[in-house]
């Protein structure tokens, strides 16, 4: 199984931000996206996850394979940690949430309401959600925001375990996750130049 991105052009607010992005991600590997703020990493990840249409190019191998996690985790403050995880597990057709609780050290918190957790604990719950989806490709946007050193370590371990089982990870991050053999892709060279046509919507008016 492979995730292939070919000559992808993406737009934010109708304006092309990155053009000609191409890479291949094989099973068992991780790819770290880097680049300055506002360069379009989030937009790229959303496009690959199928949440917004690309201006051009192709993404293959992503259909129904992606577990996406961004800044907001889709957690409900009025549900307990366990209920939140069970909900997402069932939506993705899974049942077992125990490994996810263990991997992110949430067992003691399992019956607390998600609204009473600290920011870092919430983040861990949001990441634990990835484990209960059963999806092979993790697409993560700044996953370590508000995590302490120990939790980042925990997250790195979870990603490594996921990769060992043949999973993949596509991560936009600025810090070192301890993924030694992960490839790094700097997206700055792909910044869309002026020659790149505007989105189909505006191009018609010029």
């Amino acid at each position: 199984m492979t995730l292939t991105v070919t000559d992808l052009t993406i737009a934010r607010g109708g304006m092309p931000v990155l053009a000609g992005v191409s890479f291949t991600l094989m099973a068992g590997h991780a790819l770290i996206l880097r680049g300055p703020n506002g360069v379009g990493k989030t937009t790229l990840l959303r496009t690959i996850a199928g949440l917004q249409p690309a201006l051009g190019g192709q993404v293959t191998g992503a259909e129904d394979q992606i577990a996406y996690a961004a800044h907001s985790d889709g957690l409900k403050a009025m549900l307990s940690v366990r209920e939140n995880l069970i909900f997402w597990a069932e939506v993705f057709g899974q049942t077992d949430i125990a490994p996810a609780l263990v991997a992110f050290d949430l067992c003691d918190l399992a019956d607390r309401l998600a609204g009473t957790l600290s920011a870092g604990q919430k983040r861990r719950l949001g990441l634990a959600r990835l484990l209960v989806t059963g999806r092979p490709i993790w697409v993560l946007d700044e996953p370590t925001v508000s995590l302490d050193v120990a939790s980042v370590e925990m997250f790195g371990t979870a990603v490594r375990a996921h990769l060992k089982q043949g999973g993949m990870a596509l991560i936009a991050t600025h810090i070192d996750l301890g993924l030694l053999d992960a490839k790094v892709l700097d997206v700055s060279p792909f910044i869309a130049r002026r020659e790149v046509p505007l989105g189909s919507s505006d191009e018609a008016f010029l």
Partner: peptide, 13 residues
């Protein structure tokens, strides 16, 4: 607001 709809859109449902 809390991103649930985004995540549901990527779910099999």
């Amino acid at each position: 607001e809390d991103g649930t709809l985004d995540l549901l859109a990527t779910a099999p449902l």
